[in-house]
Simulated assay, not measured.
Amino acid sequence: MEDERAVPDDPDDKTAGRGREYRAPELAEAAGITVRTLRFYRERGLLPPPRRAGRIAWYDDRHLARLHTVAALLERGHTLGGIAELLAAFESGRRDVGELLGLREPFAVPWAEETRVRLTPGELADHFAGQVTPENLAASLDMGYLAVDGEEIVHISRRLLDASAELVRDGVPLSAVLEAGRRVRVQADALAETFTALVRQHLADGEALSSELERLWPLARTVIEAEVSLALARRVRAEVSAPRSRTDG
């Protein structure tokens, strides 16, 4: 039986460059589950094997992300057996992931000028250099970036797809891109509400609101793009002019 007791960190641990690692009790605590549940998930094939050093099993942030994905899918009504099948299907490249998730209908795009992109699972993986993990797939589905239509995956926006893929090619992990997108969406929703409230208060309400928003949204986009451009310029100037700490070689 493996030793899953928490012990003090070893300052000479040669795994320091691998990112955060957890023993089983630490991983279970971070995921909000018990060690017994963690073992059960492993037995059901929901977690990849841990790295072993002697009798100690070491987990990392990928295992924590997988546990968060399992929790999210359980909240959406999936069974553990269904989740295991979903993860196995995606990792083996099967094309029926959408059926397993219960997502068969393509989403409707509003009148905003975004072009949907249809991709095979292989093409999606090629865009993101092997970073289309089950965790990143689940996050993209939850955010509405992706949906499944038959044997194809549909991305909601060509511009978002291209920008995300370029960031990944430049070295930003896809998980970090998705998290940034989640934070940007919060701000974007607030901007949209500001514009909608402005139109509702001063120009139209009720049935006329939709038509007025459609007519005036290019003005809102112009203001938002200008303000974001100015904000980025201010940030660049601040970064350039900020004093930098120097360490003697």
Results as ranks from 00 to 15, higher is better:
49 P>A: 15
50 P>C: 08
52 R>Y: 10
53 A>T: 14
54 G>D: 08
54 G>T: 03
54 G>P: 07
55 R>N: 09
55 R>C: 01
56 I>N: 04
57 A>E: 09
57 A>K: 11
57 A>R: 15
57 A>T: 00
59 Y>K: 07
59 Y>R: 13
60 D>N: 15
61 D>M: 06
62 R>K: 04
62 R>Q: 04
63 H>F: 10
63 H>Y: 00
63 H>T: 04
64 L>Y: 07
65 A>V: 02
65 A>E: 14
67 L>N: 10
73 L>C: 03
73 L>W: 12
74 L>H: 05
75 E>I: 08
76 R>P: 03
76 R>A: 15
78 H>E: 02
80 L>E: 08
81 G>L: 09
82 G>T: 09
83 I>M: 09
84 A>H: 02
85 E>K: 15
86 L>A: 10
87 L>P: 00
88 A>Y: 04
90 F>K: 12
90 F>W: 15
91 E>P: 04
93 G>L: 13
93 G>Y: 13
95 R>F: 01
98 G>F: 13
99 E>I: 00
101 L>V: 07
101 L>N: 11
102 G>C: 13
103 L>P: 00
104 R>K: 14
104 R>P: 00
106 P>T: 02
106 P>Q: 04
107 F>M: 05
109 V>N: 10
112 A>H: 05
112 A>E: 12
114 E>K: 11
115 T>D: 13
117 V>L: 15
120 T>E: 14
121 P>N: 06
122 G>C: 06
122 G>T: 12
123 E>V: 11
124 L>T: 14
125 A>I: 08
126 D>F: 10
126 D>H: 11
127 H>M: 12
128 F>E: 08
129 A>V: 13
131 Q>D: 06
131 Q>L: 05
132 V>D: 01
133 T>Q: 02
134 P>Q: 07
135 E>H: 05
136 N>I: 00
136 N>Y: 03
136 N>T: 13
137 L>K: 15
137 L>V: 12
138 A>K: 02
139 A>M: 11
141 L>T: 10
142 D>F: 03
142 D>K: 14
144 G>T: 06
144 G>H: 10
